[in-house]
Design a protein around this nucleic acid. Structure first.
Lengths: 210, 210
DNA sequence: GGATAATCCCATCAAATGATTGAATCATAG
DNA sequence: CTATGATTCAATCATTTGATGGGATTATCC
């Protein structure tokens, strides 16, 4: 018995998948309360009742979106982990920043929704999310800041959070920062990578760059 | 002829000021669409009509909150600028991080609302905000990254944004990160300062710490 | 082809939400 | 005290919003 989310993943052309895609974008842009089921339905080009038919209520759809982006992010992090494995720390950071920045700019809903969950409350009951501590610990291990993926210290967790958040910030804040800087998208993405490397690499490599 | 905001500032005991205070907190926690006028009125302990009497419609109140936090932030930044003036860069960063972190933890609505404006869209028309580029340029000058407060390069603006955002992130994200790390508030604040210094000081001082 | 289930839309509902009206209350100057 | 204006609240409105029921349409299986 597949869940609606599993069905959607199996058939990306299905109505379920289409709704999920637009829901991700809109929830990411406007937040949970800022997005109406009618907005989502209108974007997809369907009736609200069709939306409810496929995904139940709004909260269920939202939670499916969250689970979905966590899945995507987990997969991408594993991919990056394989690529950088064994390289020196400076190089690991350099490559991770390049790959993850490109990926997040291509999938802005991920950064948007992650930040929303960090900073905004829902008026309805919030479900606990175990993905963030899991990811954070994994990255700490992958960066060589921890000897294992368990019992990572708060100090190290904070450093990893700082790195990840600065990426999400620039990706999700593009709509605000880019008009402010009056630069085009290509330049902005390049500048984001440069800035991230400028800020983070010295901290973890002791001033050197490799 | 005073605007409602000016009246509220003159008399912090007034109903206008009281409403503004609760509105700041709630808009910061739940965002524009996540906050209802009834939620604000209930917190203040008044009727919705009283709220509308003092502040007009919801959007006007929200914009007053934004102008208000910008004023507070501008004042605090000037204060910090005076304190760190003339010190070496590493020391300037060290002290700025201490003071601003304490200040923002004492006034969490500021970080919350700033981040909301960066990352979330409103369904209603967004008004341009000229405070952010202004503040950013001022900080760039204050950090010695720019020779003047005008014509600050995008590269430098990005670096300043990265520093400010990492502070706002930890302040605004306390409700998410602190339970995750299972540490008390005091420890968290200390850890935030340490992490911010660990990340940012090496980048701007070339590896040294003074 | 015909039965069956899945998918979709029109019409509609109930609750939530932003906002207003008009009457009551309070403060204060004359 | 009393008239005037400022402030507050109860009641109410119009719209938005989440959600559903029932019928139409389409796909699928036998």
């Amino acid at each position: 018995m597949d869940t609606p989310l599993e069905k959607a993943r199996k058939d990306p052309e299905s109505m379920k998948a289409k709704i999920l895609t637009f829901a991700r974008r809109l929830f990411g842009e406007y937040g949970f309360h800022g997005t109406t089921t009618r907005m989502i339905a209108r974007e997809v080009g369907i009736d609200i009742s069709t939306l409810h038919y496929h995904w139940g209520n709004k909260k269920d759809l939202y939670e499916s979106v969250i689970i979905d982006i966590n899945g995507d992010l987990r997969q991408k992090l594993r991919e990056v982990e394989k690529i950088i494995h064994g390289l020196p720390l400076g190089k690991r950071l350099d490559i991770s920043i390049d790959i993850m920045t490109d990926y997040l700019f291509d999938h802005p809903g991920i950064s948007n929704l992650i930040l929303f969950r960090y900073f905004a409350k829902n008026r309805y009951e919030g479900n606990l999310d175990f993905s963030v501590p899991e990811f954070t610990a994994d990255i700490a291990y992958s960066m060589g800041l921890s000897t294992g993926k368990k019992d990572v210290s708060p100090e190290v967790m904070m450093k990893v959070i700082a790195v990840m958040n600065s990426m999400h910030n620039f990706v999700s804040g593009e709509g605000f920062f880019r008009p402010m800087l009056k630069i085009d998208r290509q330049t902005y993405i390049l500048l984001v990578k440069e800035t991230l490397k400028f800020i983070h690499i010295p901290a973890f490599t002791g001033g050197g760059n490799g």
